[in-house]
């Protein structure tokens, strides 16, 4: 379980997170939703220690992540993968090399051939195997994103944090990513925390949804709770309406 307890974060004078508290239960697919700039990326980066809270605690099972140093965080990061909002592939390496890198560095495979076979299998899961030998600069943003997902899955993480995994993908590939996330948690027991404002994904695969608004948790609940909410902010967001109480 991932727990945020009273987490606050400011950049300069701007308060991005204000006493955010919620849990991410094991095995489920949880979504964090909110407008652009609401602090969703900042929030999930707290889990793997890329951002430190100004106040509050973040727990991963029985580890208080927010207290760990960079070295201890390495073991957290093997268990909890992060897929960045923008594909962060290494420019100087092919797709296959990108995916093989964590396998190699953490000894997941005895021989080079074994590692390459595993890397290919991971690429196949995101339908990118035919592009194994391409370099990132030769691929579109959506393809790079899928390779980045394959790379994040390389170490068989228990938790996966996805930052806007379907943004920039065409609808067909977006649904494929949704299905991949579903398969991971239904069959692999992986716990997923997904940042998104893709309404189709949200209402398609979410078990639980947390909505952030102005740095605070606005509503936590199931997709049905969100559909039926009479909070005008929530209603405006889930219906994708231009007019309403949300700031531009």
């Amino acid at each position: 379980m991932i727990s945020f307890r009273e987490v606050s974060k400011r950049f300069g004078t701007r308060t991005v997170l204000d006493r955010v508290t919620f849990d991410v239960p094991r095995g489920a697919i949880s979504f964090v939703i909110g407008a652009s700039g609401a602090g969703k990326s900042v929030l999930i980066k707290h889990v793997t220690g890329f951002v430190r809270p100004d106040a509050g605690e973040i727990w991963l099972d029985d580890l208080e992540v927010s207290r760990l140093g960079e070295r201890e965080l390495a073991s957290v990061r093997k268990r909890c993968a992060l897929v960045f909002q923008h594909a962060t592939l290494f420019d100087s390496q092919s797709c296959l090399e990108n995916v093989a890198l964590p396998l190699e560095k953490h000894g997941r495979g005895r021989t080079g051939a074994e590692i390459r076979a595993r890397a290919r299998a991971l690429l196949a899961r995101v339908h990118m195997e035919p592009f194994a030998d391409r370099y990132p600069s030769e691929l579109g943003e959506g393809m790079k994103k899928r390779v980045a997902i394959a790379r994040a899955l390389a170490l068989d993480p228990e938790y996966v944090l996805f930052d806007e995994p379907t943004t920039g993908l065409d609808p067909v590939n977006a649904r494929r990513v949704d299905r991949l996330i579903q398969t991971l948690s239904r069959e692999g027991g992986v716990t997923s925390l997904v940042v998104s404002h893709d309404l189709t994904s949200i209402f398609g695969i979410a078990d639980r949804i947390v909505m952030l608004y102005k740095g605070r948790v606005r509503l936590i609940g199931t997709p049905d709770d969100f559909r039926q909410s009479d909070d005008p902010v929530v209603r405006q967001f889930v219906r994708g309406e231009a007019e309403g109480p949300m700031d531009a």
């Binding site: 073991s75 992060l82 962060t88 592939l89 290494f90």
Partner: peptide, 10 residues
């Protein structure tokens, strides 16, 4: 963010 991506892979 490629450097953070490395750290994310431990």
């Amino acid at each position: 963010e490629q450097l953070d991506a490395l750290r994310a892979l431990a």
